[in-house]
């Protein structure tokens, strides 16, 4: 299946809100992983993961906790580098550039691949400074007005601007949980990434905040490649076009979301979807 998805170039440049689920197969491949393994010290956490991730679509990773889905996500922008004793094997290519190429600059990579974390983690700075942080360190704004523009447009894109426009100088931590998470999304967008990785972005939020974030993800997919790890199958079904099921560090099955949920090939996938694996 990934062979087809990788090669065929049938991109519809016009944004289609009601995208046909099967269109995902025709999207350009943005990320492709081959035989990725991860060891933490002596323990192997991932076993030969190979997957292609399509452009301008939401791909979700599901599976029971500890199955390696977050670990794999963190391989994509090399966040595993920050964990002592972690070793990554295999290859991940972003637009043909090997992510683990020793000559590749991690800083540049992470500017291209943004990340949103499980728990909202705004910096202990004002709302404005939180969003401006990325553009500032990367030198993306030539002037103060430039920076203002980036901040406002990022907050708009994250659907937060109207709520916070009068208090941009208040600390980011003063927002509610859902707002904080959208602030973190705005923060990631402000750098202008191609890919946004989301590691269970709604697990710390209440249902209403979750619904708002899910809507946002659906809107964002028109401009970004989004990879989301979630423990909620409903969420995967709601927001993603492609789904991959992980179990015990292995990629068991991947495909168009509808297929995975309605017609899983593997017994383990069936069991998980039926709620037989915790």
């Amino acid at each position: 299946m990934d062979m087809i998805a990788g090669k065929i170039k049938l991109t519809s440049k016009t944004v289609d809100q009601s995208m046909n689920p099967l269109d995902v197969l025709e999207r350009e491949t943005r990320l492709s992983a081959r035989d990725v393994t991860v060891h933490y010290g002596d323990k192997q956490a991932l076993f030969g993961i190979s997957i292609d991730i399509p452009d301008r679509a939401v791909t979700s990773f599901i599976g029971p906790s500890g199955c390696g889905k977050s670990t794999f996500l963190r391989c994509i922008n090399r966040m595993n580098d920050t964990i002592e004793g972690a070793r990554v094997g295999g290859s991940i290519k972003l637009d043909g550039d090997d992510v683990y190429d020793p000559n590749l600059d991690v800083v540049e990579l992470r500017a291209r691949v943004g990340m949103v974390f499980q728990k909202p983690n705004p910096f202990p700075k004002s709302i404005y400074e939180n969003v401006a942080y990325g553009p500032k360190i990367h030198g993306l704004a030539r002037s103060r007005t430039d920076l203002d523009e980036i901040v406002v447009s990022s907050l708009r894109k994250a659907g937060l601007f109207e709520e916070v426009k009068d208090r941009l100088n208040e600390p980011g931590t003063s927002l509610s949980g859902g707002q904080q998470q959208r602030l973190c999304i705005a923060r990631a967008i402000a750098v202008g990434p191609q890919v946004i990785l989301m590691d269970e972005p709604c697990s710390a939020l209440d249902p209403i905040a979750t619904a708002i974030i899910e809507e946002l993800i659906d809107e964002l997919r028109e401009n970004y490649t989004i990879v989301i790890v979630t423990h909620s199958m409903q969420q995967a079904a709601r927001v993603s076009q492609k789904t991959a099921f992980f179990h015990l560090g292995k990629l068991i099955e991947e495909g168009v979301t509808e297929d995975i949920f309605t017609n899983p090939e593997h017994k383990q996938t069936q069991d998980y979807i039926m709620g037989r694996i915790g």
Binding site: V106, V107, E108, R110, G114, P124, C184, R187, A188, V191
Partner: peptide, 27 residues
């Protein structure tokens, strides 16, 4: 200082020293 805060900055592409100076130390 929570690790998440550090990861947040690194995830945006900040270098380690930028993360330390701009996020860790202020926190």
């Amino acid at each position: 200082v929570p690790r998440a805060m550090r990861d947040g900055s690194l995830g945006l592409g900040a270098t380690q020293s930028e993360t330390i100076r701009n996020v860790l130390l202020p926190a």
